[in-house]
Every structure is written in C-alpha cells, then in structure tokens.
Amino acid sequence: MRFMKLILISIIIFGSLIFLTSLIFPSTAVVERSGVIQAPVDVVYAQINDLKAWPSWNPWAKPDSTAALSFSSPASGAGAYYTWSGKQNEGKVTILDSAPDKGIHYLMNINNLRPVNGGIEIKPTSDGKATAIFWHMEIKLGLLPWWKLRGFMADRVYGSTMNDALNKLSTICESRPQ
C-alpha cells in the first residue's frame, strides 16, 4: 500500500513539474520561409491564389495518395476552399483574403490538430523582374504540454517541407512564359 502511495505521489509531482515547465514555452508556433522567384508577381500570384494549382507545388495540398480532393467554385480568391479526405486525415483550407499585389492569407483545419493561420506574401523585387516571397504559418498551441512540445519542434518538422514547396513553386513559375 505504501508503495502505491509513493508511485501515485511521484506521478502527481512529475506531471505537475512537466506542466509548470511547459508554461515557459510559447503558446504559439511560427514557421517562416522566404525566397526570390525569378518570375513576375502576376505569375507567382496566379499559382498561390488558385487552389487547384496547389497540388503541383504544395505537398500539403494532397496529404496522401488516397486523399480525395474537392474544390469550391471558383477555386481562387477570397472565400475559395478545398477539402480532402483520406486514410490518414481530413481537413479544409480556406483563402481568407487575396490581393494580386500582396498575396494570400489562409486558414487550414485538419481533424484532430490545431488550426493553422498562414499567409504567402509577395512583392516585386527592387528591379521589378522577380518576386520576393514570404510564407508563414502560425499555430496557436494552448497550454497543454504535448501541444507545446509539438510547437517547439514545428520549425524542424515543417520548415524543410516549406523549403521544398517554395523550390517547386519557383521551378513552376520560372518555366512559365513571361
């Protein structure tokens, strides 16, 4: 009996320490990537604003090979969305606002995960021949330690995928006739 009390007290103390330690971690995870695409702003905007173009460059647009995608009509501009349903998960991406000279902001909801507020901002480079691009994602984590740990690793987990996506987007945009 005494051994069980000791184990119970140890679990309570250990759990409390983990929770209190997690309070020092931020409650928001932010992942950002930027680059320059050697194509005009309108070419880049056409790719990021049209959700039907996303599967060609954005790896999260088709999360698994079994996912069925469904697009709104129209599939571009503010209010446009797509949904997916697959073996691994299901979710929805909605463009919240869109401007040809600024880029887009979107909301991504994936079942059993925290919502992701994201944006892909664009502007012409100083010579006007290329496009500077800035992609950011923000995830509100709350207070639970396991979410905060996940947020602590967000840049490591999602950053390389964002780099790959920007490279694919760059290749697509630079191969378009200008």
Score class of each variant (00 low, 15 high):
Trp146His: 11
Ala132Gln: 14
Thr28Glu: 07
Asp127Asn: 14
Trp135His: 09
Pro145His: 10
Pro55Ser: 10
Ser56Gln: 12
Pro40Cys: 10
Ser76Pro: 08
Tyr82Gln: 02
Asp64Lys: 12
Leu69Tyr: 06
Asn109Trp: 02
Asp64Thr: 14
Gly91Pro: 00
Leu20Gly: 05
Ala78Asp: 13
Ala99Cys: 10
Ala130Ile: 05
Asp50Lys: 03
Leu149Thr: 07
Leu51Trp: 07
Thr21Cys: 08
Ala132Cys: 03
Val44Glu: 04
Ser56Asn: 07
Phe134Cys: 06
Glu121Ile: 11
Phe134His: 15
Leu141Phe: 06
Glu32Phe: 06
Asp101Gln: 10
Gly103Ile: 15
Thr66Asp: 13
Leu69Arg: 05
Ile110Phe: 07
Thr21Asn: 09
Leu149Ala: 08
His136Ser: 08
Asn109Val: 13
Asn89His: 08
Lys92Met: 14
Thr94Cys: 03
Trp54Ala: 06
Lys148Thr: 05
Ile48Gly: 02
Thr21Trp: 11
Gly79His: 15
Val43Tyr: 01
Ala130His: 10
Val44Ser: 00
Phe71Lys: 04
Phe25Glu: 00
Ala99Trp: 04
Thr125Glu: 14
Pro124Asn: 12
Leu96Glu: 14
Tyr82Cys: 03
Thr21Ser: 10
Ser76Ile: 11
Lys62Arg: 04
Trp146Pro: 03
Trp147Ala: 05
Thr94Lys: 04
Val41Glu: 07
Ala67Asn: 01
Pro100Gln: 15
Asp97Val: 11
Arg33Gln: 08
Ser22Met: 03
